[in-house]
């Protein structure tokens, strides 16, 4: 047996040992990584669940935002439409009041307005103001209210009267405009109810 064959055997042995060592190392590494994988499985699952829950939460938040804003937007558009229609009704009513006949029933209305004004102000010593259309109606009624005089100044209104005490310290607005203004919220409600059926 020559030197070469002994050398070959030695090399082969070393190779075998190294191979076994490498295989053993690989097996250990495989085992260790399988162990690590098994260990991290539960924490990974927890992490996965957490990410999923956060994503779900974020999605719900976004859904809430989008739906909330869309609902509000459509509600606001509806409000504007209703208001536009209410405004049209008011304009028509005002036009009707402007052209209303100054007949007997209107005269009765003015009479009740004067009486109401005197009761509210607490004195019959009053100056009554009205517009040019109602001047003759008011003038004809003042004889029923001693102490009341018609002012030469005319006011700009749809109809009705404005009174003030003779010393000028108290005023009471009983024009149709003022009454319409005071009842505006109730009239708006009635109109809106009719729109909605």
């Amino acid at each position: 047996m020559g030197i070469d064959s002994a050398l070959e055997k030695t090399v082969e042995k070393i190779l075998q040992n190294t191979e076994q060592q490498i295989i053993s190392n690989l097996k250990d590494a495989l085992k260790s990584s399988q162990q690590t994988l098994a260990n991290s499985q539960s924490s990974l699952e927890q992490e996965y669940d957490k990410i999923l829950a956060e994503g779900k939460k974020e999605a719900e938040k976004l859904e809430k935002q989008i739906i909330g804003n869309a609902d509000l937007d459509s509600r606001n558009k509806q409000l504007l439409l209703v208001e536009e229609s209410i405004e049209k009704v008011f304009q028509k009513a005002i036009a009707k009041l402007q052209t209303a006949d100054r007949n007997e029933s209107y005269s009765k209305l003015i009479s009740s307005l004067i009486k109401e004004s005197i009761d509210t102000i607490g004195t019959s010593e009053i100056i009554v103001q009205t517009n040019s259309k109602d001047k003759s109606v008011v003038q004809s009624l003042l004889s029923k209210f001693p102490g009341a005089t018609l002012s030469a100044d005319q006011i700009d209104c749809l109809g009705g009267i404005r009174v003030q005490s003779k010393d000028g310290s108290m005023k009471f607005d009983n024009t149709l405009d003022a009454r319409l203004d005071r009842l505006n919220p109730l009239i708006r409600k009635d109109i809106a109810t009719k729109f909605r059926g």
Binding site: E116, S169, F172, D173, N174
Partner: peptide, 12 residues
């Protein structure tokens, strides 16, 4: 709410 409203006083 009524249509009657109130008296306006100008003596401040």
């Amino acid at each position: 709410m009524s249509a009657q409203g109130g008296v306006q006083y100008s003596k401040i």
